[in-house]
Design a binder for these strands. Structure first.
Length: 669
DNA sequence: CAGTGAGCGAGCTTCCGCTTGACTT
């Protein structure tokens, strides 16, 4: 009997079936040894020697594996072929006390791939293991030394780390951009034109041969243009027709699956992963934590057959499509996420609706990735009316290709049959006011995408990272499910940015990866890499313990304690802010803090924020720096600024948006 | 859903990445 060890129990069952009765296949369930949870576990005096323990959760697995090893003729470590997988193999060898064993790897779970792998055993790659140890130790040093600093200087229970602190930083920076954003007004002029009783839209692009974005089309000019166009007799000056192709997207990775499931199915990263885990365990899809775009040859062949038989031969491009990661950091231990059997049509399987929807998305995306490109015919017409030039764009789908399977926002928008010199009638003109929009806050999947592009985090950690930064109270989801920093998130980010800039630097991980590569190639020794980071870091940390003052998280208020008449203050507690008596502990009065923030900066003092307040006469809005700043409004500010006088816009009781400046009469619905 | 805090100073909080049950309600 030979014992094969892999990471995932689902995988182990499949492999056992493939290998037959001479083999037994068991799972390690991930890492079996780690640094201790309750202390640093790194000998700083002795070349960062790590102290590894078997966590209680892994104890049971290790004991069972030990038993099986004792009765096996041979042990084969078949864990993933990447940095973490190699380390798991090494830890297994250590924890199970293996003297004699084989190390093999494969990228797809097919009889051929596994049998081929069994013929080519090798040794554990200790350089790769060392690069993993360096990664692990560096993360531990940062996390376990910076977090206590935050406990001392800000609040208990906080945390910092190579990945989470950058994630929070991205969200804080985005919020600052939004706050600093000044909307720019711009105008457009649209017309509805008619030809042979068919109407289409055209937009004003030039006046007297000058492009309107260079011209700075303002309200006056836009209205004037609209009026003149109404009475004009436009003529087609030029027509252009172009055939373009739209190619399908590659099959799913963890990151793109989370993005699309978020967009189309409105799922959070965690929900997507939970459903995917379910589909994986039931055998419907391949492994769901992956950054690979590769598909097994057998899967490519299946897609080809399916397309030829079920969809039509034109929908298969004549050869398989191969996709490559642009990302060098991708570790490619698995395949892309795909159905294990493309003939398993989503309409014919029995799953809960959310799991089915996710399966359908994966099925469609996988099949589409092997389909022909869509062919579009794009038409653009240049239309002249006196001094004015208009443009109309249309497109029709000549061949739908992959769009037949994969839903897309792409729409047909045909223009009527037009010829040069055709005369057109103007049915309608419209001058419209617009404002440039601030950048959007991150949704969960958008943050995952940003992190992935920066090479920060791994498929197995994207969803947990998002949970962590919310659990720590750094970030919250607003009603639109967008991530917004909390006050504590901003305070911690500010502190780290100021005193530990490299930790929140988006390039830190990329630099670390370069060093880890050198270790993996045996060009550098891991303790030296750690040392060159840790020496300046720990010196800086020591200095900052001395020089940085503890943050004062309390805020003054203008309210008095109803029990003892001392001033009330706002404090930051485990569950967020609350009102407490400044006479604590003599007076123990508390009151929950109603979230009365508007998120709008005070225009008067620039540093305060407008908050909702209650008075005897009702609710009003005022600067939170009262009594230092006495700015107040009776209506709720929207956060936008008046395009005419740049004072704050407010929403009055009738729901109208108005300017807060009394002598400015700007208004909109 | 209520409760959260200060300080005395015990014992605790915390990282990232690999993987699923085994707990309770």
């Amino acid at each position: 009997m030979k014992l094969v060890i892999v990471e995932s129990p689902t995988k182990s069952k499949t492999i056992e079936k493939i290998l037959g009765s001479d083999y037994r296949c068991l799972a390690s369930l991930g890492h079996v040894r780690d640094l201790p949870k309750s202390k640093l576990g790194i000998d700083l005096e002795n070349d960062f020697e790590p102290q590894y323990v078997i966590p209680t959760k892994a104890r049971k697995t290790v004991n069972q594996l030990k038993k099986e090893v004792a009765s096996a003729d041979q042990v084969i470590l078949a864990v993933d072929e990447d940095r973490e997988g190699e380390a798991i193999a090494w830890h297994l060898a250590q924890a199970l006390n293996l003297k004699d064993f084989e190390r093999i790897t494969f990228h797809e779970i097919t009889p051929e791939a596994i049998k081929e792998a069994l013929k080519n055993p090798r040794d554990i790659d200790l350089n790769l293991v060392n690069s993993q140890q360096a990664r692990r130790i560096l993360d531990r040093l940062v996390g376990y030394q910076l977090s206590p600093f935050l406990w001392k200087k800000v609040m208990r229970g906080l945390s910092a780390g190579r990945v989470q602190s950058v994630a929070v930083h991205l969200i804080v920076e985005r919020e600052k951009e939004i706050e600093a954003f000044k909307p720019q007004e711009y105008w457009t002029v649209k017309t509805v034109l008619e030809k042979d009783k068919k109407t289409f839209e055209a937009t004003l692009v030039k006046i007297k041969n000058k492009k309107i974005d260079q011209l700075g089309l303002d309200k006056e000019k836009a209205r004037q243009a609209a009026q003149q166009l109404k009475k004009s007799e436009p003529i087609i000056a030029q027509l252009q027709q172009k055939e373009t192709r739209r190619h399908p997207s590659p099959p799913f990775t963890t990151s793109t699956l989370q993005q699309e499931a978020g967009r189309r199915l409105n799922l959070s990263s965690r929900q997507t992963m939970r459903l995917a885990q379910n589909l994986y365990e039931k055998g419907y899809i391949t492994y769901h934590r992956t950054d690979s775009l590769n598909m097994a040859e057998s899967a490519l062949k299946q897609a080809e057959d399916y397309l030829k038989k079920e969809i039509g031969p034109d929908y298969w491009p004549g050869q398989p499509r191969f996709y490559r990661n642009q990302d060098k950091l991708a570790q490619q231990a698995h395949e892309a996420i795909r159905p294990t059997d493309i003939w398993q049509h989503p309409d014919r399987i029995n799953l809960t609706p959310p799991a089915l929807n996710l399966y359908r998305l994966i099925w469609q995306r996988t099949l589409a990735s092997q389909m022909s490109s869509a062919v579009l015919i794009k038409t653009s017409a240049e239309i002249v009316a006196g001094d004015y030039s208009l443009k109309a764009n249309g497109q029709i789908i000549k061949f739908d290709g992959f769009l037949k399977i994969y839903p897309s926002a792409l729409k047909e928008n045909p223009l009527p049959d037009l010829k040069a010199k055709d005369k057109l009638t103007v049915k309608k003109t419209l001058a419209e006011q617009h404002f440039t929009q601030p950048p959007a806050r991150y949704s969960e999947p958008a943050l995952v995408k940003a992190l992935e592009n920066l090479g920060i985090g791994r498929p197995s950690t994207y969803a947990p990272i998002i949970s962590t930064i919310q659990e720590r109270g750094y970030v919250q989801k607003n009603p639109e499910k967008r991530l917004q920093p909390t006050e504590i998130g901003r305070i911690v980010d500010e502190l780290l940015s100021q005193h530990f800039p490299e930790i929140v630097d988006v390039r830190f991980t990329a630099k670390m990866e370069e060093e880890l590569d050198l270790i993996a190639q045996a060009k550098k020794k891991w303790p030296e890499v750690i040392k060159s980071f840790y020496q300046p870091f720990s010196k800086n940390l020591e200095d900052k313990y001395q020089s940085v003052e503890k943050k004062d998280l309390t805020e003054k208020t203008d309210r008095l304690c109803p029990e003892c008449q001392s001033p009330l203050i706002i404090r930051m507690g485990r569950y967020g802010k609350f009102y407490g008596c400044s006479n604590f502990p003599k007076c123990r009065f508390t009151e929950p803090f109603k979230n009365n923030k508007t998120g709008v900066h005070c225009p008067e003092c620039q540093t305060g924020e407008i908050v909702e307040k209650k008075s005897r006469r009702g609710i009003f809005y005022a600067c939170n720096r009262y009594p230092d700043c006495r700015f107040a409004l009776s209506d709720k500010p929207t956060g936008e600024k008046c395009p005419e006088c740049s004072a704050l816009l407010v929403k009055n009781k009738e729901g109208k948006i108005k300017c807060s400046q009394k002598n400015c009469h700007f208004q909109k619905d």
